[in-house]
Design a protein around this nucleic acid. Structure first.
Length: 480
DNA sequence: ATGTTC
C-alpha cells in the first residue's frame, strides 16, 4: 500500500513518486526525497510541475529527482537532479542555472571559537574590507583576455600557481578545481568582457563569507577524518562564476532555443531550452559551461587566499586548510550503473551536491575510506551541516544530495516582513556579527526566509543518502 | 544568481 499526497505516491519513507501519468510527455517518473509535511507543500508548488517538465526531456534516465530543499527555478527546479544519456539525450543550460558552479568551500583553522570570539567584530570588518562583495563588484586582479583564457582552462590551479593558495587546496576541490572539457573558444566576447575584473569577488544575493565553529559532532570518526573537532573555527565561502557564468548561460539559452527547432526537440517550457549532448550546440555549451565552472573554482580559490590573508593578519601563525570545495550548479559526464549496466550520463545538478560514498575512486586519498564531505549551508542565524556521502546515494540519486536550506519566503516577501537593521541587532544579541552591502539585501537573506536546514538534512540522513558529521554555528558573516 | 528590462 502506498500513501497518496495529492499526485504523489509514497514508495518508501522519504521517497515520493510523481507518476508518469501526472503529465503528458513524461518519459520517467519524478522522485521527491522529502518528509510528509514537505510533500504536502510541494504538491501545491510550481516546483512539482517543473520536476514533471524535466521528466519530459529526451534521453532522461531513471527519474527526475527533487531534493528536500527543492523550490522553483528557471525551467528546472532548484534542488533538482537529472541525468541524460550522452548518446541520445540532451544538455540544458536551465538544468545548471545562471550561476554556473555556484558552490561552497569549507576551510578549517587551527584555532577555536574561544580564540576568535573576542575579535569577531574586527575579523568580520576586515573580511568585508579585503574581500570585494556586492553586485558588479570588481577585484584587484584585472586579467588580460589571455590570462582569462588560462583561468578558464586551469581553474583553481591558476590561482595556486600564482601564490594564491596551497597545493593541498586543489586536492580537496571537486575535479581538483578544473573540468577538462573547458574550451575558451566556446565563450563569447561579452562573457570575457564581464569576467575580466571579477575574479576574487564574492558577488551578491545569497553569496557569503561566514566565520563559524563546530558546535556539535555526530560521528567522531568522520569528523576527525575531515578535521572538524569540537569548537574548531571554520570559514565557509559561498560564491560562483559571477557575471562571467551568467553571460555564458544567457548566450547558450538563446543558442539552444534556435537549436531546438533545428533538432526537432519539443519541450513543455521554453526555459528548458536544450540540445542533444552530442550536437555541435550541446558540445559547445558543455565546453563553455566548463570554462565558467573553472572560473568559479579559481574565484573561490582567490577568495580563500584573501580570507587567509585576513586570518593571518589577526591570528599570526594560524593554519587555514581546505576541507572541501563543492559545486552545486553544474553538469558533468559521469559513469553510473543503470539497470545493472555501466552507462555514461550527463548529470545535471542544480542546487544539488555531488556526493561520493566510501571507496569511490574519485575521492581524495584522505577521505577515501569515509566518503565525500557534503557541505550544506543553512542560514546566517542558525547553523550549517557537514555530511558524508553514501554508497546508497550513488545507487539512488546518481550520487547526489541536497545543497542548502531552500527558500521559504520569496525575496520580495522577506523584504516586506523583515527590517534589515533590526535583524542585525537581533543576530548580534545571539552572538552573530553580520555585515552586508545593504540592509535590504540582508533582509532578503534573513533566517526566517529559509527553511530549517536541520529538517532538510534529516531527510537525507534518514533516507540513507548521507551521514551526519558535524554542525557549524556562525559567529561572523559577510553578505554580498 | 545577474551591469536585476540587450
Amino acid at each position: 500500500m502506498s500513501k497518496q499526497v495529492g499526485p504523489l505516491l509514497q514508495r518508501a519513507p522519504y521517497r515520493y513518486e510523481l507518476p508518469e501519468t501526472y503529465k503528458k510527455g513524461m518519459r520517467v517518473p519524478g522522485i521527491l526525497w522529502v518528509n510528509e509535511a514537505a510533500a504536502r507543500l510541494i504538491a501545491e508548488d510550481q516546483s512539482l510541475d517543473q520536476l514533471a517538465n524535466v521528466a519530459c526531456l529526451p534521453g532522461i534516465v531513471g527519474a527526475s529527482h527533487g531534493m528536500p530543499d527543492i523550490h522553483a527555478g528557471y525551467g528546472f527546479p532548484i534542488g533538482g537532479v537529472a541525468a541524460f544519456r550522452t548518446d541520445s539525450g540532451v544538455i540544458s543550460p536551465g538544468g545548471v542555472g545562471y550561476d554556473i558552479n555556484c558552490g561552497v568551500r569549507l576551510m578549517k583553522t587551527s584555532i577555536t571559537v574561544e580564540d576568535v570570539r573576542p575579535h569577531i567584530e574586527e575579523l568580520t570588518r576586515r573580511l568585508q574590507r579585503d574581500v570585494p562583495s556586492g553586485l558588479a563588484s570588481e577585484g584587484e586582479l584585472s586579467l588580460s583576455a589571455a590570462d582569462l583564457r588560462d583561468v578558464m582552462v586551469q581553474g583553481a590551479q591558476w590561482a595556486v600557481d600564482r601564490g594564491m593558495g596551497e597545493l593541498q587546496d586543489l586536492e580537496f576541490c571537486e575535479d581538483r578545481g578544473a573540468m577538462q572539457a573547458a574550451d575558451p573558444n566556446a565563450v563569447s566576447e561579452r562573457a570575457v568582457k564581464r569576467g575580466r575584473n571579477q575574479l576574487g569577488t564574492l558577488g551578491s544575493g545569497n553569496h557569503f563569507l561566514e566565520v563559524c565553529y563546530v558546535d556539535s559532532v555526530y560521528d567522531d570518526g568522520l569528523a576527525e577524518a575531515f578535521g572538524l573537532r569540537y569548537h574548531t573555527v571554520c570559514v565557509m565561502v559561498h560564491s560562483g562564476s559571477r557575471g562571467f557564468g551568467h553571460q555564458i548561460c544567457t548566450d547558450y539559452v538563446s543558442i539552444m532555443l534556435k537549436a531546438m527547432t533545428k533538432h526537432g526537440i519539443h519541450v513543455p517550457d521554453r526555459q528548458l531550452a536544450c540540445a542533444p549532448f552530442d550536437s555541435d550546440e550541446g558540445q559547445k555549451y558543455y565546453s563553455a559551461m566548463a570554462c565558467a565552472a573553472n572560473f568559479a573554482w579559481a574565484n573561490r580559490q582567490v577568495l580563500a587566499h584573501l580570507v587567509r590573508g585576513v586570518m593571518s593578519g589577526l591570528f599570526p601563525g594560524i593554519k587555514v586548510s581546505t576541507v572541501y570545495d563543492v559545486a552545486h550548479n553544474i553538469a558533468r559526464v559521469e559513469k553510473h550503473v543503470v539497470e545493472g549496466r555501466p552507462l555514461e550520463l550527463i548529470v545535471h545538478r542544480k542546487g544539488a551536491t555531488k556526493a561520493l560514498g566510501p571507496g569511490n575512486s574519485l575521492l581524495p586519498g584522505a577521505y577515501s575510506r569515509y566518503g565525500q564531505p557534503i557541505l550544506v549551508p543553512g542560514d546566517m542565524g542558525r547553523y550549517s551541516y557537514v555530511l558524508a556521502g553514501t554508497v546508497k546515494a550513488q545507487e539512488e540519486t546518481f550520487g547526489s544530495t541536497c545543497h542548502g536550506a531552500g527558500r521559504l519566503l520569496s525575496r520580495e516577501a522577506a523584504k516586506k516582513s523583515v527590517d534589515g537593521s533590526m535583524l542585525k541587532a537581533t543576530l548580534r544579541d545571539k552572538g552573530i556579527f553580520v555585515l552586508g552591502t545593504s540592509n535590504a539585501s540582508l533582509a532578503e537573506e534573513a533566517p526566517e526566509a529559509y527553511k530549517d536546514v536541520s529538517e532538510v538534512v534529516s531527510v537525507m540522513v534518514d533516507a540513507g543518502l548521507a551521514r551526519k558529521v558535524a554542525r557549524l554555528v556562525p559567529i561572523g558573516v559577510v553578505k554580498g
